[in-house]
């Protein structure tokens, strides 16, 4: 009983204050790097298009690519390859997909975006295929 009042106060602060102070998830570029390297690059190694280095595109080009959401020249959606169903489908053979199986789609998208923005040709730390 003695805990009831403070608990209610805490919850009230939470409900009233959180929307005011909450900020958008900014993206974890390190996790994005792991996904890019271990999922995107691993798959691209066996594709005709080959591996795409983050620093082969500028930030503007990456932004346009992400906004277009077209993978394989428009054959499918890029977000498909970041989604939980795709990760679940390859989790048996891809350790990164298994490790990030439960990461929300929008977080993983933000992670990947943060990584390619940082690692683009004109980014803060241009990064090759590694």
């Amino acid at each position: 009983m003695t805990l009831r009042k403070p608990l209610l106060v805490g919850l009230a602060i939470c409900l009233l204050g959180a929307p005011l102070l909450a900020r958008a998830y900014e993206g974890d570029w390190k996790r994005g790097h792991v996904y890019y390297r271990m999922v995107c690059t691993e798959c691209h190694k066996g594709q005709p298009c080959g591996v795409i280095a983050p620093n082969s595109l500028t930030r503007a080009e990456w932004t346009a690519y992400l906004q277009a959401d077209k993978h394989a020249k428009g054959k499918d959606s890029l977000k498909t390859y970041l989604g939980k169903p795709f990760r679940a489908s390859i989790a048996g053979t891809n350790k990164a997909a298994a490790k990030f199986a439960d990461v929300p789609d929008e977080e993983l998208y933000a992670d990947l975006k943060a990584f390619v923005m940082r690692s683009a040709k004109d980014g803060d730390a241009p990064t090759g295929c590694r």
Binding site: V9, C14, A18, R23
Partner: peptide, 17 residues
């Protein structure tokens, strides 16, 4: 140790990851 812990942690998690 505080009875406010639960609420404040939810609050903090929402606003400051």
């Amino acid at each position: 140790r505080s009875a406010l812990a639960v609420g404040l942690f939810i609050f903090a998690g929402a606003g400051f990851p």
